[in-house]
Design a protein around this nucleic acid. Structure first.
Lengths: 203, 203
DNA sequence: CGGGATCCTGAACGGCTGTTCAGGGTACCG
DNA sequence: CGGTACCCTGAACAGCCGTTCAGGATCCCG
C-alpha cells in the first residue's frame, strides 16, 4: 500500500492521525492537503509522497481509526467473563467520553465523511463495508456466546447486530453534532435499554 | 430568505431539487455551483442570484427535501385510524422504495452531507436539529396517542422516538450505501421488529 | 405605448488547489 | 570514506472555483 516498504510506518500513522484531526476541525470539503501537512509541520508534497491521492488518504485514515478503536477495547474485552459484560464494554466504548472533550469525537467524525465519499469511491466503499461487517460480526459473536451460555434470550444474532450497530450509529450522529436532546449519557442509556429489551439480560 | 420576494418560488424549488440531485450523483465535495446550474440548464450566476452562498443552498435543500417527505406521507397519515397504522406509514416511508431505483435515495443522500457540514455551519446545524427534533416529536406524539388508546405498551415516548429515529438513520445509511447485508427489505423488517418489541403492538 | 420591476446572463477577477518533479539532506552500509 | 537508498522539500504549473457586477431580456401594468 505504501510507496516505500520502509520502517516509516510511524510517519504514515502520524499522517493518518493528522488527517482525522484536520477533517474533524475543518470539515471534509474544506480540508486541503496543505492543512493536513501543516498539522504535522510538513510540506504538502510529503502527504502525496506517502499516499497516492486524497481519497486513499481518507480511506486509510478510517481504517486506522478503526484499528485504534479495537486496540483500545481489546484489553478490557479480554478481561470480561460474561457475554453481557463484553457487550457493555463495546457499547460503552462507542459513546464519546465527556472527559476527553473533543479528541474522542475525532474517531466518530470520519464516519459521515466516509458515508459521503463512499458513494463515489469504490475503494473507500469496500473498506467501509468491510469494517461495518466486521463490527456487526463481533457483536453477533458475543450475542451467540451469551445465548449459548443462557445469559440472553434466543434472538437472531445477525438481526440484533444490525439493529444495535444502526442504533449506535444513529445515536452517535446526534451526540457528535451536539444535539440538545441527545448527549453521551442519554445515548448510553438508550443503547443499554435496547440491549436489555432485546436480550432480556440482567433480569 | 429569498433576495426577491417574488412569485418565483417555482424557480427556487427547481434549484433546490437540482442541488439534491447533483449532490446525489456527484458527491458533496465535488459539487460545484456550476454543476447545479448545468442540471437545470442555467448559468452559475443564477444560483447565487437566488441563494447567498453554497452553505445556505445546502441548508435550504435539506429543508425542502424534508417538506417533500412530509407532504408525501401527509395524505396517507390522515387516512390512518390507529396509532400503529400511522407509525407503520412513517417507517414504510423511511425505507427507500426499490421501485424508484435512485430517485428515492436523493432524499436520504442529503443527510450525510448535512451531518458533515453541520459541524461548521451554525445555520445548517440549527436547521438540521430542528428537523430532527420535529421528526422525533411526530413519532412521540403518535406513540402517546397509541398508549392512550391502549394500543401500545406504556413506554417513555421521548426515549422511544430517539431510539426509532436513530435506528432508522443507521439502517438507512447502510441501504443508501448498498451494503450487501442490509437492503431496503431488511431495513423494513428490522425497524418493524424493533417497534413490535418495544411497543408490543399487534400481539 | 412606455417605463419600471423582475429575471437572468456573460465575462472577468482574484485566489487557491492538487499534483509533479528535480534535487538536496541524511543515515547507513560496505 | 564513498556511495546508495531513503526521506523530504521548494517551487512551479495548470486549471478551476466562488463570487461580483453591469447590463440585456422579458413581462406587466398603467
Amino acid at each position: 500500500m505504501s510507496p516505500r516498504p520502509s520502517l516509516t510506518a510511524t510517519r504514515r500513522n502520524e499522517i493518518l492521525a493528522a488527517t482525522s484531526a484536520t477533517i474533524a476541525d475543518r470539515g471534509l470539503c474544506e480540508t486541503r492537503i496543505a492543512d493536513i501537512a501543516d498539522h504535522i509541520g510538513a510540506s504538502p508534497a510529503l502527504i502525496l509522497y506517502y499516499f497516492p491521492s486524497k481519497a486513499a488518504l481518507v480511506t486509510e485514515a478510517l481504517v486506522y481509526q478503526d484499528q485504534m478503536f479495537h486496540e483500545a477495547v481489546k484489553g478490557e474485552l479480554d478481561n470480561a467473563t460474561t457475554a453481557a459484560a463484553k457487550l457493555d464494554i463495546l457499547i460503552e466504548a462507542s459513546c464519546p467520553k465527556p472527559t476527553r472533550a473533543n479528541g474522542d469525537l475525532d474517531g466518530w467524525v470520519l464516519w459521515p465523511a466516509a458515508w459521503e465519499m463512499s458513494r463515489h469511491d469504490p475503494t473507500l466503499a469496500a473498506a467501509r463495508a468491510r469494517l461495518d461487517e466486521s463490527w456487526r460480526a463481533q457483536i453477533a459473536s458475543i450475542v451467540e456466546e451469551g445465548i449459548a451460555a443462557g445469559e440472553f434470550t434466543d434472538v437472531d444474532a445477525s438481526d440484533f447486530s444490525i439493529q444495535l450497530a444502526a442504533l449506535l450509529d444513529g445515536l452517535a450522529i446526534e451526540v457528535m453534532l451536539r444535539d440538545p436532546t441527545v448527549d453521551a449519557a442519554r445515548m448510553r442509556k438508550l443503547a443499554f435499554d435496547f440491549v436489555e429489551l432485546a436480550l432480556n439480560n440482567r433480569v
